[in-house]
């Protein structure tokens, strides 16, 4: 579905992504893990067209999107749930969702807004309760759900999420991950960027490990979970804690 070849990108003279190649197949959850500053957000922004790629190819459904504008990429069926949620704080929850459906009602006259909204409210019942509240007044977890709901309103085939669990209580994080699993069951494809490597690998089919702009490891999520390098670098505390208890 999504194929990336030798992608290079950065900010001005700063090269962040160095020849990244990866792919996401239909129906998969693929997770991308890496330390702070590895370039995860940069990769997603480049796919979404927010930053320009300086080299390589981004192909979505045989359509080369490397030099497309962000709105064309959304139209092509690839939506991003950005880092930090980025809800329309001064607008109502429902207006946020309606705006998410913008490309759909641009695309076709047969677009039924109320049905789409109902589908989103089914996945996120809490948003229905809060539909008239200003989005800026929602809790962090609710804002994350709103950001996801808004992206889903565009009817994407591939949904990319940048650190959806940041700053959320473990219980809410579990809900969010549950919803991501549910999305896959409903036929969506997910590219998930996470700091929370353990939970991400637990729900993902495959994973990539990004370090200073390069992919250093890739493979089925279960293999990565068992990989000692990954354990040391990204699941570090768990390994140390485990050995510590063994020592005693």
């Amino acid at each position: 579905m999504l194929k990336i070849r030798n992608l290079e990108s950065g900010y001005g003279k700063l090269r962040v992504l160095k020849k990244i190649s990866m792919h996401v197949d239909a129906g998969e959850i693929v997770t991308l893990i890496g330390a702070n500053g590895a370039g995860k957000t940069t990769l997603l922004s480049t796919i979404a067209g927010l930053s320009r790629a300086s080299g390589g190819d981004i192909v979505l459904f045989d359509q080369n999107l490397k030099s497309s504008a962000p709105q064309e990429i959304v139209k092509a069926g690839c939506s991003l749930v950005p880092e930090g949620r980025q809800v329309f704080a001064t607008m109502r929850v429902e207006d946020n969702l309606i705006l998410g459906g913008y490309v759909q009602y641009q695309r076709s006259k047969g677009y039924c807004q109320s049905a789409e909204l109902a589908a989103i409210y089914d996945i996120f019942p809490v948003l229905k309760e809060r539909r008239d509240q200003l989005a800026g007044t929602l809790s962090g977890g609710e804002q994350q759900m709103l950001a996801m709901g808004r992206a889903l309103m565009a009817g994407p085939k591939l949904i990319m999420m940048d650190e959806p669990s940041t700053g959320l209580a473990p219980l809410i994080v579990r809900d969010i991950f549950q919803i991501i699993l549910h999305l896959r069951e409903a036929g969506n494809t997910v590219l998930l960027v996470e700091q929370n490597a353990k939970s991400a690998l637990a729900i993902a089919d495959r994973g990539y490990v990004l370090e200073t702009g390069k992919i250093i490891l890739q493979g089925p999520a279960a293999d990565l979970l068992g990989n000692t390098d990954v354990q040391r670098a990204y699941l570090g505390r768990d390994v140390d804690a485990a050995t510590a208890t063994c020592d005693i």
């Binding site: 980025q86 001064t90 705006l99 009602y105 565009a154």
Partner: peptide, 23 residues
């Protein structure tokens, strides 16, 4: 109006408006 809301969305959060496919 939908155009009005789109402009408002740009005002509220330009990045997010772009990600909704608004030019």
């Amino acid at each position: 109006t939908s155009l009005g809301k789109e402009m408002q969305a740009c005002a509220a959060n330009r990045l997010a408006a772009t990600l909704c496919g608004i030019n």
